[in-house]
Design a protein around this nucleic acid. Structure first.
Lengths: 104, 104
DNA sequence: TCGATATTCAACCATACGGTTTACTATCGA
DNA sequence: TCGATAGTAAACCGTATGGTTGAATATCGA
């Protein structure tokens, strides 16, 4: 899980995942919008691959990258565990608002 | 959000958050179970504080650390966006299992 | 076949990170 | 008051990270 969370700590990598959610893209296609080397993007993809968040499918000379978001699930589960810590806050706010409505 | 995800990329810090979910603890209390310096733990707490995941309340010479999980919400929302990418997989698995049951 | 395209390998650089140690400040308790 | 306790500050160390460059490899298209 370390690898998953660490991977998500970089905005470029989150951007890559976001774009992959619309379909697989090659490394160069992924790199196009960024003001950095193709190599840099390739490394980011490798990091994501290491975290199990994407897979690379070599097709000819191109390497297509596919989203594989199952790995996000453990992260989501971990975070979900803390859900009540912000929901409680919302509930408290809701209570206040309700009381204001009743009193007013 | 970078800071939130990066913070969660370290198991010590996730452990700290987990223990804080049962109530506030001082730095030394947090440090006790770990085989590392008090200073190291203090730094981890600072990282979590920087990500908005905890707050420090100085009480006498002790510093009590409180969980402040609202910051996890944005992370949870981001991840939730990809939910279908693993749910689809589960649905597909469910279909296969159903078909097996019908055929058998 | 040959040049262009797509990617990776390898080396390198600057900075950040996880950790330590030592020294310091501040508070508690006897 | 004085020693013990709680924490921070500052400097340091080894390694990881995000990035670069230049050369190498493999495939496509004419």
């Amino acid at each position: 899980m370390d690898a998953v969370f660490s991977s998500l700590g970089d905005p470029t990598r989150r951007g890559i995942l976001a774009r992959l959610s619309e379909g697989a893209l090659s490394i160069s296609e992924l790199a196009a919008p960024y003001d950095m080397t193709l190599m840099a993007v390739s490394k980011h993809v490798s990091v994501l691959e290491g975290a199990g968040l994407v897979t690379k499918e070599k097709r000819g000379r191109a390497a297509y990258v596919h989203l594989k978001a199952e790995s996000l699930r453990s992260a989501a589960t971990w975070i979900a565990h803390y859900h009540r810590f912000w929901e409680d806050g919302l509930d408290a706010l809701g209570d206040v608002l309700n009381r204001m409505r009743e009193d007013g």
